[in-house]
Design a protein around this nucleic acid. Structure first.
Lengths: 175, 175
DNA sequence: AGGGCATGGGCGACTTTTCACCTAGCAGAC
DNA sequence: GTCTGCTAGGTGAAAAGTCGCCCATGCCCT
């Protein structure tokens, strides 16, 4: 399961609670993956029962105790194995293209509206990615780890830009 | 469910069996969606029970009888509603970027290998898309329906190309 | 005579994912 | 005073999707 690997990856950076993980998914990971709260907690307990992580309860003042999850040596090995293992090519899933594929029966202006809606989404995404990118620390980018994390954001940017240029072409030549 | 819409879309072009649908998913739809055989059959019976499609058993010589599924008027309405309805923006899911994000701990040559593997995949995909694209009929492209179907393939091509240029950059600047 | 392959349809078990709901304390706004 | 939101950690149920297996026929190849 990919989610288990991603969580293991985050735990390898520092111990975290399910709550912390959710916040990371919503911020730094969000441009290439996201996960439901329930799923995170369930996967976390799976990691513990399979020996890839351990829990430590840390009491806090004025707040509920933190169930801090720590990666184990076995967990680090599993993570390493995943990182260096063969690529699992997953099938493409673009629901929007499903609409385009079957949009031949629509009126011309309905198709134009569909493309415009997609453009609005893409432009919004583009702006948010660029903002995130601009906030990155230059010093961190010089290091391999920071460079690679930024590269995943760049991936998003490059792809949104190609989406926009595709939209230009499709709109421009629509018969 | 998106799968139900896509099946409805295919049935709107012509009546089909589950088997026919699977073949369409594996060929023309494959570049933006795919579905499991079991899932197709299940969704098909859902469509029938919800009145969006009907079944007609067509006996054949030397072959098992075809369970031909026909779209109903209600099915066409549902399809239309989906096509013109608001976009359902789905979260990004790129397992490969998960690896890149956590690849900071790897040796430099392991990272290079990871990127090279991705490049090989992308190049293979690119070649297959270009082949498919070259086989398209020029006459069909002039019509709106054919133009839009081709556009979904172009989408795949544009995105694979941007993937390759991203790989160039990441490999070239890797600290 | 046997094996593989294409046509056609399907079941059962499983995992993954989503959705809604629940607990509980504390802070700040209205 | 109540209401929203944040901290924290869940549960239960349903939907969606995957995996392995099953049935039948008939063709071609060796």
């Amino acid at each position: 399961m990919i989610l288990a690997r991603l969580i293991l990856g985050l735990l390898s950076l520092s111990p975290m609670t399910g709550y912390d993980l959710k916040k990371h998914f919503d911020s730094s990971i969000n441009h290439f993956w996201n996960a439901d709260k329930a799923q995170i907690y369930r996967t976390l307990s799976q990691l513990v029962t399979s020996g890839l992580a351990t829990v430590r309860t840390v009491p806090q003042e004025n707040y509920p105790a933190r169930q801090e999850h720590h990666i184990t040596a076995a967990g680090r090995t599993a993570l390493q194995d995943w990182l260096t293992g063969g690529l699992d090519r997953q099938p493409a899933r673009e629901p929007f293209l499903g609409r385009i594929f079957f949009a031949g029966g629509l009126e011309r202006d309905e198709i134009v509206a569909l493309l415009a809606a997609r453009r609005a989404e893409a432009e919004e995404l583009h702006a948010s990615y660029r903002t995130l990118r601009a906030e990155l620390d230059d010093a961190a980018l010089a290091e391999r780890r920071g460079y690679l994390m930024a590269a995943t954001l760049d991936h998003g940017i490059v792809h949104v830009e190609s989406e926009l240029s595709w939209l230009d072409r499709v709109e421009g030549n629509l018969p």
